[in-house]
Amino acid sequence: MVALTSSHVMRSYAYWLVVYRRTWRGTVITSLLSPVMYLAAMGVGLGSLVKGGNGTDGLTYLQFVAPGLLAATAMQIGSFESTYPVLGSFKWMGNYHAAAATPLTPSAILVGHLLWMATRALIASSVYLAIIAAFGALRTPLAILALPVSVLVGLAFAAPITAFAASRDRDSGFAALQRFIVVPMFLFSGTFFNVTQLPAVIRPIAYVTPLWHGVRLSRDLTTGQLEPGAGWLIPLHVLYLVALVVVGVVIARRVYQAKLAK
């Protein structure tokens, strides 16, 4: 087995930078407009009907929902960037196969691409966080730490989904992934309301969703207010997300090896 060298990873990463330089214009509108619309509609509009209190950890609704949206955006970026671009790189565009004929190993190709997905999550979250700040919904400079959390959330989705997408031959599973995993998490993992409001039987499901852990961390950091009586959960949130990244990478690595060096 050949060791994974950082220079090879950066070469694989550079590919995605060049591609993005050509395509970033198409993503600008979405990444600017979408936060403004969500924060205005949910935070300000809907928020005017919501009375802050126990249900919102004592925060205004805007302060409550903004970090949730931030984490959910990282989820969406992570779960999109790891589906079509991954399958396409194997199947339609062939860029993985082109890279595999060079000194790059399947692992370097994988890790470079994951690093790119993390970068995408970072870019989108930074824009989002800046807009949240403009809405006046940040309560502490600690909020800047929500960015690494967003990257972690993005990767906690991207790594396992990369393993899934790489093992597919067609894109047929991707719509189901959106419909049955991403959208329900977006709605029920604590972004818009605390999962404690959920019926007790459903609540455990919310606790195993990676998004819930991300939303909790994100909210702790942007409000500077540890979840009441549960500050000790913070390392567990981080570990849970890290574990998902690790499992995803380990499985994806096998799939890449099998597909690019068969």
Partner: peptide, 18 residues
């Protein structure tokens, strides 16, 4: 296995980078 959306030259530069 060319990158169709990129330019001719960019295709070579990326490969050189590899």
């Amino acid at each position: 296995t060319l990158d169709l959306e990129l330019t001719v030259r960019e295709n070579l530069l990326i490969y050189g980078r590899y």
